[in-house]
Simulated assay, not measured.
Amino acid sequence: MSKAELVTVVVPTYDRPKLLRRAVQTVAEQTYDRIELVIVDDCSPVPASDVLSEFDPSLEAVTIVRHDANRGANVARNTGLHKARGEYVAFLDDDDCWDERKIEKQANAFGRAPESVGVVYTGVEHVDENMQTNAVLTPQVEGAVTKRLLYGNFLETFSVAMIERELCERVGGLDERFPSWQDWEFFLRLSLWCRFLAVPEPLVVRHNRPNGQLSHDYDRKTEVTAPLFREVVRPIAAELDDIDWTTVDASLEYHLGRAAMRNGRYSAARRHFGRAIRQHPLEVPYYVYLVAAFGGKRTHRPIQRIKRRLVRYGQ
């Protein structure tokens, strides 16, 4: 990838004016020369154009598109894709931030990569509401990653990825039916067409706010997301060698159990972890979280702290 190629940054937003200004500022501060910014306002009460009226980033182009009704984040991302002119697309959630070198480092990685690479992603630093770092995730997975993605979204968020725009179009864009796990499902479909490459640095800051993210909505995960995800994933798993569907389904139950715990639904969490163990009894973390779910908040919080330490040291 030469430095002359255009990168389109797509920022979907809804009713978070302060966070939007912060996110856009980190786009404006990028060290890469050619960036166009497409902001998709999903019918915010205060239009994004008003929020950014005094903001004049030195980018190649800035476009603000406003939906006439709230249609959801994936629809907003697809709107941004339709407007994109760049060779590559980078999504940025409005509550996340970028290191100023993110796009440049990803562009350089694409320039060194073989043609089979269609996604370059970075690591993530998680910070809490007090701006304290509670986890730093450094990428370790590269190449053909479909099997790995069947068991979990190791990229974590749209905000880490730079993707070939033509590849986004080839897979049909984002599936607008998903209220959560949208990024996981999208990355999985992309992985069927290309290889992934990692920039092993935490160049995205993800702000974890209690109950502030769709990923924390347990009911929608169980009623809508999980059935849809199984519908999409099962045919993919069936086409791959050495994949046992029960182990994949056990992993989904584990993720649902984690979502239940984050929402304080400890009885539901125990059911999910129990199902995961019945399907895949050799996976130690399932037992750890099942025990934690019996203790409610008293054991959930210590488990979270232990997990963060393990993640921080790459375990």
Rank of each mutant, 00 (worst) to 15 (best):
R209P: 00
V224E: 13
L197F: 08
P202Y: 02
L203Q: 05
T225M: 14
D217F: 02
E185L: 13
T222L: 07
H216G: 10
D219V: 14
W193E: 14
R206K: 14
L197P: 06
E223L: 15
T222R: 13
F186S: 10
H207A: 05
S215Q: 08
L197R: 14
L188I: 02
L214V: 12
R209G: 01
W181Q: 14
H216I: 00
L214Y: 14
V199R: 04
P210Q: 12
D219C: 03
W193C: 10
R209Q: 10
V199K: 02
W184S: 08
V224R: 12
L192G: 11
L203P: 07
R206I: 01
Q213L: 12
V224Y: 04
R206T: 06
V205E: 11
K221R: 11
A226W: 01
H207P: 09
H216Y: 11
T225Q: 10
K221A: 05
N211I: 04
N211R: 14
G212D: 04
P200G: 00
V204A: 02
W181T: 08
Q213C: 06
T225K: 09
D183C: 04
W193F: 14
P200Y: 02
N211V: 09
F196G: 06
L197Y: 04
Y218S: 01
H207Q: 13
R206M: 08
W181E: 09
D183Q: 12
L197A: 13
L203S: 01
H207D: 13
E201M: 10
S191C: 08
P200L: 03
G212P: 09
T225P: 06
E223D: 15
R220Q: 12
A226Q: 03
S215T: 09
E201G: 01
P210S: 11
R195D: 15
L192H: 05
G212M: 04
L203V: 03
K221T: 00
D183T: 05
T225S: 15
W184D: 07
L197Q: 15
T225Y: 07
P202T: 02
D219W: 10
V204K: 02
Q213T: 03
R195G: 13
W184G: 05
N208M: 10
D217E: 07
V224C: 06
S191D: 07
Q182R: 13
L190C: 07
H207T: 11
V199W: 00
K221Q: 12
D183K: 07
L192I: 06
A198M: 06
D219F: 07
L214K: 01
C194L: 12
L192E: 15
F187V: 02
V205L: 11
L214E: 15
T222Y: 01
K221C: 00
R209I: 06
W181C: 15
R206H: 15
E185K: 11
H207G: 01
R220F: 02
L203A: 01
G212I: 05
P202K: 05
R195C: 10
W181S: 14
N208F: 00
E223A: 14
S215F: 00
L190Q: 06
F186D: 06
S191L: 04
G212F: 06
V199N: 03
D183V: 01
V205M: 11
S215W: 02
F187L: 13
V224N: 04
C194Y: 11
L197W: 00
Q213D: 15
P202C: 02
T225F: 07
Q182V: 11
P210L: 09
H207W: 15
